[in-house]
Amino acid sequence: MQENIERSGQSRNRPSFRTFLFTASSYRKLAGMSAWLLHRFTGLALVAYLVLHIMGLRSLADPAAFEIYVTTYRNPLFKIAEAILLGSVAFHAFNGVRIMIQDAFYRSERQRQLFYGVLVLTFVVTLVGGLSIIFPYFIAPMLP
């Protein structure tokens, strides 16, 4: 245990695949690590989406082009992607708030509880929002 902490402390300043393995091998850091990794991953994914989004919205200049653009997003596969996007935003947003709370109040002993809180909130928002997104496509047709 002691050794693990020292090892992950040693390489803290240089994230790399090696650092990742060291940190992941330390149980105590696993929750924090997955939170950090997911936060970074969702953040970068959102940046990619944002670039596509802004380029797509050039179609606002032409009503017919805009109508076609939003219709491509009404494909069933895109609806699932939309729910995943919502999940990414929700996790990133709630976890971002957790990071800010933790930085502001130094409640590091609460880290684990706060992270589980983030997961629960993300799950609830993604479930409720995601279901309402896919409802007309996947759920309504199954209803009698």
């Binding site: 109508e67 939003v70 997003y73 009404r74 007309p136 496509y137 309504a140």
Partner: peptide
């Protein structure tokens, strides 16, 4: 088919 009708209960973004 680049523009298609809304499904029942769907809410659609439109120009």
């Amino acid at each position: 088919g680049a523009l298609k009708e809304a499904l029942p209960g769907e809410h659609v973004i439109t120009y």
